[in-house]
Design a protein around this nucleic acid. Structure first.
Length: 362
DNA sequence: AACACGGGGAC
DNA sequence: GTCCCAGTGTT
């Protein structure tokens, strides 16, 4: 079937029907009670690639801690990252801070109020610009997120691979046409995402109670479980992290991660990554300052093993707790610094590190 | 165009 | 185990 022909009239009824469905079924979420572009922006950044249930408590904490964009602009980046800890994709937090400062200092605290101006901000792409522009300012521009790909691919029977550029263009064009018939662009955008999130779900969509069942190409052809089409991702990379946890007088040596890698600007311990799993400290090749220190130090505990699963990596970590004699505490690599437990608790850390600290010392 | 970037929840 | 989430930035 060629969806462009609109042979069953769905193109003109789609938006109003979804808006009607939304008014009946929408969830009560905190960011739906505000028109403040700052709060809406904050919620949209948090919700990027993040489920509502996971993001909601973070949103509450952020709006409480930083009620205005000026409050966030004033914040220490480390404190902001600490609040973000556990949410993942930490570049979102760094971009959040950068944009808060830009809006406060260069735009006199006034958020950009059009799709095209919003798009210029760090961390705001097509989706988020459309979301803020429509929710806060009523601009008639369609959001296209994972929910929208799923709903549109099913209703209109589009089987293009949604990871390709041409497919993205197809969906964007269709979405732009559909929003023209909406009674209210903000309501419609909320509606199509909410519909995808709680009704037209990835597995087990509720087709039997669907308001557009008889207009849905996927349902009518039994293809709802095969749409959207999405080509497979690369297999997860296996990584082996050997952490040397240096301790002295109750303090631990940590360093900020600065490399172009995961967990940028978060803190962890001295790390030796190996291509294969190593089960003993003596099997790990150590370079000089550290090798000296390890030789003259005392293993303080059995190694702790831990695994962290990311979308794209599986990290198998071993932590070697090592007591360092006083005379060697200044011999360690310069990027390592000694922190008291109370200081460590205030540093932003990957979940892998937090879990280890709980296990070893908690 | 392809890839990197977290963590968790649902099945 | 698999999928994928109110995506964006870089190469």
């Amino acid at each position: 079937m060629n969806w462009q022909s609109d042979s069953n009239g769905i193109e003109t009824t789609f938006a109003p029907v979804l808006e009607q469905w939304y008014e009946l079924h929408k969830r009560d979420l905190p960011w739906r009670h505000t028109l403040d572009p700052y709060a809406i922006w904050l919620s949209e950044i948090i919700l990027q690639q993040t489920r509502v249930a996971q993001g909601k408590p973070y949103y509450e904490r952020f709006v409480t801690t930083y009620p205005t964009v000026a409050d966030m602009a004033r914040a220490d980046e480390r404190e902001l990252l600490r609040l973000w800890q556990g949410l993942g994709y930490y570049s979102r937090a760094r971009n959040l801070h950068q944009t808060a400062r830009y809006v406060t200092e260069k735009l006199s605290g006034k958020f950009p109020d059009t799709y095209h101006e919003l798009l210029k901000m760090k961390g705001i792409g097509n989706y988020t610009a459309a979301a803020i522009a429509s929710f806060a300012f009523g601009e008639r521009v369609p959001v296209v997120d994972g929910n929208v790909y799923r709903v549109l691919s099913r209703v209109f029977g589009i089987d293009e691979d949604i990871t390709t550029t041409t497919a993205k263009k197809t969906f964007a064009t269709l979405a732009m046409r559909l929003i023209q018939t909406a009674n209210d662009p903000a309501t419609y955008n909320q509606a199509i995402m909410e519909f995808g999130a709680i009704h037209c779900t990835p597995v087990a969509p509720d087709c039997l109670l669907c308001p557009i069942q008889q207009q849905c190409v996927a349902y009518l052809t039994g293809r709802q479980h095969r749409l959207p089409v999405k080509s497979k991702k690369a297999p997860v990379r296996e990584r082996y992290f050997n952490y040397l946890v240096f301790r002295n007088e109750g303090r631990l040596a940590l360093r900020e991660r600065t490399a172009r890698d995961i967990w940028q600007n978060l803190y962890d311990f001295y790390l030796l990554e190996t291509d294969e799993p190593k089960t003993a400290l003596r099997d790990i090749p150590l370079s000089d300052p550290v090798a000296q220190v390890v030789d003259q130090s005392v293993p303080a505990a059995l190694p702790v093993e831990s695994m962290q699963l990311l979308s794209h990596q599986r990290i198998r970590a071993r932590f070697y707790l090592i007591d360092v004699p006083d005379e060697l505490i200044n011999s360690l690599p310069i990027d390592l610094q000694w922190y008291l437990p109370v200081e460590i608790s205030n540093l932003p850390k990957p979940v892998l590190i937090t879990n280890y600290l709980d296990q070893q010392f908690g």
